[in-house]
Amino acid sequence: MNASGIIFLLGLFAAPAVLLWLGHRLRGRGAAAFGAFWGGVVGHTLALVAMLITAHWPPVLWVEGSVREGIIFVSLLTASILGAAIGAAVAVARAK
């Protein structure tokens, strides 16, 4: 399996698992964890919708090294991490 396949599997299975773990007893955690959780959930959900739409594009558009690779293989993981980072940053800024 190549790197994009591993990133895809991490985004598909590991990212929601980490978010679920982060969401456990969320009220007891700090503002940063709260923001990271919701940011990650929003990021992963948006990426999942984008991945589903992109995956259903006709096969002629499935050209190697295209936008398809970015959206289908990488978006789930990157959107979760990016969402969590933005969410945490916003929450910390608000707390201040």
Binding site: G11, F13, P16, A17, L19, L20, L48, M51, L76
Partner: peptide
């Protein structure tokens, strides 16, 4: 349920 959401949706 949460972990397999993506693949079940597809």
């Amino acid at each position: 349920g949460v972990i397999t959401t993506g693949v079940v949706m597809v």
